[in-house]
Amino acid sequence: MLGSRLTPDAAIAGARPGPRRRVSRARVARGATPYLLLLPVAVAIGAILGYPLVDLVRLSFQRYGLFELIRHSGSWVGVANYSSVLRDGVFWHTLLRTVVFTAANVGLTMVLGTLLALLLVRVSAWARVVLTAGLVLVWSMPVVVAVQVWYWMTNFQNGVVNYVLTSLGVGDFFQHDWYATTFSQLALVTTLIVWGALPFVAITVYAALAQVPHELVEAAQIDGAGPLRVFRDVTVPVLRPVLLILTSLSIIWDFGVFTQPYLLIGQSKITPGNYLMGIYLFEEGYFRGDYGRGAAIAILMLLIVAALSVVYVRRMARMGEEAT
């Protein structure tokens, strides 16, 4: 056996023993099929990313600054880059801050996104069109633009947010400085990221909800299951793969997020006191032109995010087994 199995074939195998007795040529064909299907993606990614990835690993073991960059050659320094990062107190503080930040962002994104998708199912058709259109409008906003708008709404001089809060009598927000403390800065970044991620999560979950068979829902309802039970026993099993993917993707994206915090907080306010990992990498590795150290930080980030999402990835893999 070539270690390949076509699922439906196997599923029917019991009912129709025919294929089992066929000549081995058919098996070879089956064996090659998944590889042929994967080949284009593998070739495309390998050809474009293969060398840069090797390069990144190589750089992380080299002294590679602007001087070396211009001459296209670094000098080997063993694990010096890694140990310098791991001995850096800023790294550990940043890591802790980023983990908390990621948890808050992913949690908010997933819960609110799923609630939005469920809302989409419950509303009338016209309201669904309106809400989806709104979501897409939000989604269609380039991140760089969204950042400008966010800044524009929260600016110190005449931000509309301060105006609204003052008008509503929440307090005196005249020229309130939203960028004065790290907490306030990161809270603003969180609103921006969650706002921007909601459409993707909501629409994807909604699309996955479309796969929930009506018959099953109806059958469950006839059996007397309440809405919560229907959700748990019928909807969630169908949603689970998509929810897991979305959660792990969100973890991956939010952990390494760079553009939103960097542009919204603004380069001039970035200090080690408000670094997130993506910014730490950029500032310490690239902005300073210490590419070797930057590469080491990148690889450490990869390992950390892999560790953070391993639970999800393993569950994914297990579910994959169940499904096949």
Partner: peptide, 10 residues
């Protein structure tokens, strides 16, 4: 999982 900023130069 790779940070994109790290890949720019390679």
């Amino acid at each position: 999982m790779l940070p994109q900023t790290a890949l720019i130069i390679p």
